[in-house]
Design a protein around this nucleic acid. Structure first.
Length: 798
DNA sequence: TCTCCGCCACAG
DNA sequence: TGTGGCGGAGAG
């Protein structure tokens, strides 16, 4: 038997199956979708079997055998293998990347270089002895100071280099103690009279014959230590075994089960439409304003799916994967739910994944990668907040969860629901064309009014002499809520600029030496950091250009706002939520909980607070500057701004108390801001579509972004130029090719960046031309140190 | 003549 | 991508 294997080497010439002989003793086991260890050139690597067959075109004498099977049960099923092939073409990625992304990180290979003894330890240089210790090998990373000595030993042949492939996380096992059920047997065990601990344990055992108990539990219950248990087990009083377990299974029985809410008429209509199509591969766009009760529809639809014996996947953006939200699923579906989020360790994720694979759970709630949940009998896929850009992975494989969802929907003949208050233009356009079925919820579920949104013209504030970052109206409102004991959320639209360090005398802004971007000031550590390459340095006392001592920190970071806020309302308790305060695990959750419990009056934060906040006491939301996302050089700038303002406004007045929103802007007349004021999606859509049509962007055109990097500016611009020329020759006349141009951030980590854009409506040759371009890159530019990245349907072109 | 380093081909 | 082989350059 012969196996086709995709090996774990992400490189263009390797991106194809390699044939291996399946050794006789493995032939009964080997199946597509299993991981294998195979020899590849001089080393061993991990790979996936994608096919087994009896014959090969390859010279049988040169074919090597599979070294080891890593799985007993395939980690990828037929569907996943097919999806990977499709994904490879769709996103222009390596097949191995597509396969790896579908498997939990714990199952991906970890390679460790090490030096292995090939002779007795006494034959090697005695200076190396301490490095080996009593092991027959040293890890390369532990032996950096003695590479020279090791090299000599390798020449002598006493030591050889080797790569060890490790499984990252294994199945967690617990030690179970099975107490003998025969009292006679227990009585027959001899214990010395002075072995007090053993006597104590025996007394416990005699009270509980036949009991199977985890060793840690037994230690607690009997008040003894592990060695005591071992000695009695050896004497035959109990059996020991290792039992597979899951990490930290949360006590689900403690979660109270909740019943369905009664659907409003609009909700019911939407629900019915979906429920009627449960066995059709149809895509629904559920457009419901914030607070219209989309989640309840999801929950009840999932319930229907479960009743028919099928499974469901629910995708949410990572940031809205809050405890509040997961609790809601657990309340409905109990231990049928697996939750996959970034807060889990690799081992915990692996455990959740195994529960899915074994069919122990029926519902998965998770972020982007949960779309690969290995269900066999999928009945429904939901993408909540479908417009979120986090559904698109921004490194290879650059897949969009929405595309994967629709593919799987077709494979399983099941519906896909895309839900949003602010659908992406692509999805809404498709719904209008009838490709997706549009379902609308126009009212909030409990009929609460939408919050009153006031737009504040900050130019006017400047004219009247208010130079602070809070308009008079906003400041008054904040004070008012404070007096009433209601809560305020302040949103700082920070993206695009942040606090930088500037010399007031010569105007020099401190720049990263490796990237064309200014350094960000971090107050807590008194450091300046580059957010692209990680470079950091202390804030200088004098300007490096003019030696002036007038160094100032500029910009509007959340820390700056916090200071201003302290001046405005010194008595207010303020919680700040940004990258700095949420770096630690669980910090995000802690801050939100504290705010929910009323431990603060004001929550101040960046994008990350725009979602999932659902507290009844929030009656004021302030957007400090609506403009920052608006003027980014990106075709989605207006769309993003509209979405953000709508989402943020939706945080106010979700319960009984009515909400008010203030949006401060220097361009208050912009349509993205004026339409967001009253959540007028349709008019916004129409106007934005007109803009897209005029400028040739999605949904009118498909876009491909091709980015080049190289150490040398001239070289990279030349490659980009050649590419554009090549594309112009080989793509159709109606396709637009934009560029080449330097990227917005023209240099990162000392590499210059250039890009070009392809805009097309119909381009049957696209895949072929992209493959051809990769060939040119491989044969000419790669060797010269260039990199090329192709992003199909990018979420942004900056 | 020995050794080191950089480039290149190749991987089943 | 990682590795080992090959050949050129420099040192002794």
């Amino acid at each position: 038997m012969i196996a086709e294997v995709i090996v774990d080497v992400a490189a263009h010439p390797i991106d194809r199956p390699f044939d291996y002989v399946v050794p006789e003793k493995l032939s009964a086991l080997a199946q597509p979708g299993m991981r294998v260890k195979v020899p590849f050139g001089p080393r061993k690597v991990l790979g996936f079997i994608t096919k087994v067959k009896e014959t090969s075109d390859f010279d049988p004498n040169r074919m090597k055998p599979i070294h080891e099977l890593m799985d007993v049960v395939p980690v990828l099923n037929k569907e996943m293998l097919r999806m990977a092939e499709w994904m490879k073409v769709q996103t222009v990625c390596f097949e191995i990347d597509a396969l790896q992304v579908m498997v939990p990180a714990a199952l991906r290979a970890k390679y460790e270089k090490r030096f292995v003894l090939n002779a007795g330890l006494e034959e090697v240089d005695s200076r190396l002895h301490p490095y080996f210790g009593d092991k027959p090998f040293v890890r390369s990373q532990d032996a950096e100071d003695v590479f020279g000595l090791l090299k000599k030993e390798m020449d002598k042949g006493t030591v050889i280099a080797d790569t060890n492939i490790q499984q990252q996380t294994a199945v967690k096992k617990v030690r179970m103690i099975h107490i003998s059920d025969s009292l006679e047997k227990l009585d027959s065990v001899e214990i010395r009279a002075n072995a007090k601990q053993q006597l104590k344990l025996m007394a416990f055992m005699k009270k509980n014959p036949g009991l199977a108990i985890e060793s840690s539990e037994l230690q607690k219950a009997a008040g003894v230590t592990l060695p005591t248990i071992y000695s009695l087990a050896e004497k035959g009083a109990a059996d020991l075994s290792n039992v597979e377990t899951y990490r930290d299974p949360k006590m689900l029985s403690e979660i109270e089960k909740k019943e369905n809410l009664v659907l409003t008429e609009a909700q019911q209509q939407a629900f019915d439409a979906i429920a009627q199509s449960l066995n059709t591969p149809r895509t629904f766009l559920l457009h419901g304003i914030t607070g219209s009760g989309k989640t309840e529809i999801y929950l009840q639809t999932i319930e229907q799916v479960l009743k028919s014996g099928k499974e469901a996947i629910m995708l949410v953006p990572e940031i809205s994967l809050t405890p509040q939200m997961t609790l809601r699923f657990k309340e409905r579906f109990g231990d049928m739910v697996a939750v996959l989020h970034s807060g889990l360790s690799a081992g915990e994720k692996y455990d959740e994944w195994r529960k899915i694979q074994r069919g122990e759970v029926k519902v998965v709630v998770g972020a982007r990668s949960a779309i690969f949940a290995p269900f066999e009998n999928l009945g429904l896929i939901i993408l909540d907040e479908e417009h979120e850009s986090s559904y698109k992975q921004d490194d290879s494989p650059r897949y969009h969860a929405r595309d994967m969802a629709i593919w799987r929907g077709e494979y399983h003949n099941c519906p896909v629901i895309l839900g949003s208050a602010t659908p992406s233009l692509e999805s809404y356009a498709r719904a209008q064309k009838g490709v997706y079925e549009l379902l609308v919820l126009e009212k909030r579920a409990r009929n609460q009014p939408l919050p009153a949104v006031h737009i504040v013209d900050m130019r006017e504030e400047l004219r009247t002499g208010n130079r602070s970052m809070f308009s008079v109206q906003m400041a008054d409102a904040i004070r008012d809520r404070l007096e009433k004991g209601e809560q305020t959320v302040l949103f700082l639209n920070k993206r695009g600029y942040s606090s930088f360090v500037l010399c007031r005398d010569c105007g020099t802004v401190m720049q990263c030496p490796n990237c064309d971007i200014s350094l960000t000031y971090h107050r807590s550590s008194e450091m300046m950091k580059c957010h692209y390459c990680g470079y950091d340095e202390r804030v200088p006392h004098t300007c490096p250009e003019c030696e002036s001592e007038h160094i100032r920190f500029f910009g509007t970071g959340t820390q700056k706002v916090e200071e201003e806020l302290a001046k405005l309302v010194p008595e207010a308790r303020v919680l700040r939520m940004d990258v700095d305060t949420t770096r630690n695990k669980g910090a995000h959750e802690k801050i939100l909980n504290a705010f929910g419990e009323g431990k603060a009056d004001i929550l101040l934060g960046t994008q990350m607070i725009a979602k999932g906040l659902d507290f009844p006491n929030i009656t004021l939301v302030g957007v400090l500057s609506a403009d920052t996302t608006l003027h980014l050089p990106d075709f989605r700038a207006a769309e993003k701004t509209y979405q953000l303002l709508t989402q943020v406004s939706g945080r106010a007045g979700r319960d009984v108390l009515p909400g008010t929103v203030f949006v401060q802007s220097y361009t208050p007349e912009h349509y993205a801001i004026t339409f967001a004021k009253d959540q007028l999606y349709e008019p916004f859509f129409d106007q934005e579509m007109a803009m897209r049509r005029a400028s040739g962007y999605p949904p009118y055109y498909y876009v491909v972004n091709i980015q080049f990097t190289h150490e040398d500016l001239m070289t990279v611009s030349e490659y980009a130029r050649q590419t554009v020329e090549y594309l112009r020759q080989h793509l159709s006349d109606r396709t637009l090719i934009i560029g080449p141009s330097a990227s917005l951030i023209a240099r990162v980590n000392n590499r210059y960046r250039y890009q070009c854009l392809i805009k097309y409506k119909k381009e049957p040759k696209l895949t072929e031309v992209m493959q051809q371009l990769i060939k040119i890159y491989r044969s000419e530019w790669l060797k010269k140190g260039a990199t090329l990245a192709i992003d199909m349907n990018p979420t942004s072109v900056m």
